[in-house]
Amino acid sequence: MNLEAIKSEIEANVPGCRLELVANPSPSGQHSLRTGAEHAVAVAVYLRDAEDLRFDFCSNVTGIDWPSREVSQKVKVRKLVDGVEQEVEEVRKTALPGTLEVVYHLFSVEKKHGPISLRMSTIDRDANVHLPSLTPVWRSAELQEREIFDLFGVVFDGHPDLRRLLMWPDFTDHPMRRDYVDPDDYEYEPTAHDEVLRRAQQHRSEADEEHPGEAGER
């Protein structure tokens, strides 16, 4: 299937919709389409219902966390150096804002083709984490979107039953985010080094407090 063709077909049929083709440099060659949040449901319905596409099977829904990061690029610019125009290399830094991305992998049971991946991103990782839910389009997204809500904190508008899936309801963190700090409750690796050594030493001093009088070897 030609993704370019699908892209222009959707853009022609969903009014006002612009899609971005995200190239995948890996040998798998599975490129994807990125849609904005406002047209996502319409795009999804079109992908599912269009005669020649019929992506009726939404196999997999994944959340990905992209914290804000800096991408440095080397660019050549012409500049006046000591009065002479020269070509110099400059490092340009672009700060990419953090986002939470959701990827849907679609197949067609009827036409037996696929996969294509459909992506959406939130505006940032704190306040604007809303995305439209595609559960009304593909029921299989129901539990998977709940999982992403639980582990990443993406809020899916229009999901009929958006609760935490895996962690308990009173849990407040989103553990699959890259900056999640897990509870410090494992310790004492006998092959201690680096970070584990630091932790082990810290726990060792706690253990010393718990075993008063039993001064072990350090």
Binding site: P190, L197, R218
Partner: peptide, 10 residues
């Protein structure tokens, strides 16, 4: 209680 283990500097 957290066990007392010997920490060897690797």
């Amino acid at each position: 209680k957290a066990p007392l283990v010997q920490i060897s500097q690797a």
